[in-house]
């Protein structure tokens, strides 16, 4: 059995070949998650509660992202999974294998080829377009949580747009460090309404969320929340008039591909103090190196 939508097919039902229902979750669960996703897209930045399921992986490993991905996957999708920008880290490999096994979809490491990208901690350097969906794994969806522990209270604050507290956090940063020292999970205002936690991506990636062509979906499994940023939506990072939002900068280029405007990881090379900085986005780095080789050959 299958449901045909625009540009692809949602496979449904048990597949005796894989031994799983398509993409692991049963159809009622996928339906419930899709309904939450529809609501999330309709109210950008608003956290929609959903009945998160137990997944065959521990909480904190992307159970929310996996459920979202499972609910939106179609048979002709090409899936890319990244963890800290890399395609070859444990979390990325295991989730990719999970969907290869349960949904038998094509997978890729190339950002440009992917239609669905599940990510932890990074947004690809390559600009995404309308034909792509970016799924984030979110540990703590509530940006106000560390300032206000009561869920009843934070919901009220969202409802009444009482976001002064968020600036209290930024104030504390400046008073302690002289600048806004929050470097990841940097709070953003979505379409001028809801303050949202962009998941623990570095603030370097915040500007990419603004006016992005791709649909951005956020799943928090343990906290049972789904939220979304539709394509071409305004996403503003919070700041002070006299301390404007700034992204991280490095005083060197990527040691492998020479990229100057990419997010760099510091890699320790030996125990003699040797270190290098290279792109955290492995696909971006590889593509740049291949291009450079090609140009050199020509």
């Amino acid at each position: 059995m299958s449901i045909t939508g625009t540009g692809g097919t949602f496979a449904t039902g048990y597949d005796s070949g894989t031994g799983y229902n398509f993409a692991y979750l049963n159809e009622q669960t996928k339906r419930m998650i899709r309904r939450a996703l529809m609501k999330a897209v309709a109210i950008p930045g608003y956290q929609v509660p959903f009945a998160s399921r137990e997944m065959p992986m521990p909480y904190g490993w992307g159970t929310g992202g996996v459920q979202v991905t499972a609910s939106i996957l179609k048979t002709n999708d090409v899936l890319k999974v990244i963890d800290q920008g890399a395609d070859d880290t444990t979390n990325a490999v295991s989730i990719r294998q999970f969907f290869e096994k349960t949904a038998q979809v094509a997978t890729t490491e190339k950002t440009t080829d992917a239609t669905v990208i599940q990510t932890r901690h990074r947004i690809p350097e390559q600009e995404l377009d309308e034909n792509q969906i970016l799924v984030y794994q979110v540990p703590i969806p509530e940006p106000l949580r560390f300032l206000e522990p009561r869920e009843t209270e934070t919901r009220k604050m969202h409802a009444l747009e009482e976001y002064g507290l968020m600036h209290v956090k930024l104030y504390e940063d400046i008073s302690r460090h002289g600048h806004i020292a929050t470097t990841y999970a940097y709070p953003v205002l979505v379409e001028g309404r809801y303050v949202m936690d962009p998941s623990p991506t570095p603030k370097f990636d915040n500007p990419k969320m603004d006016d992005m062509g791709a649909l951005q979906l956020f799943g928090a499994g343990r906290e049972m929340r789904i939220y979304a940023v539709p394509p071409w939506t305004k996403v503003t990072s919070l700041d002070f008039d006299d301390h404007p939002f700034e992204i991280q900068k490095w005083d060197q280029a990527c040691a492998l591909c020479g990229a100057e405007n990419a997010y760099l990881d510091e890699v320790i090379l030996d125990d003699q103090g040797g270190r290098m900085f290279c792109c955290s986005d492995t696909d971006y780095c590889r593509a740049r190196q291949e291009n450079a080789q090609q140009e050199a050959a020509e």
Binding site: L147, E162, G164, L165, H167, V168, K169, Y171, E172, I174, S175, R176, F240, D241, D242, H243
Partner: peptide
């Protein structure tokens, strides 16, 4: 009081809650 944040932030909270956005 908000015990987890500094004295300055405690005083500034109501200001920020009513729209103050200039740190200085």
């Amino acid at each position: 009081l908000r015990m987890g944040v500094s004295a300055g932030a405690n005083i500034g909270e109501r200001l920020m809650a009513t729209g103050a956005r200039h740190y200085g």
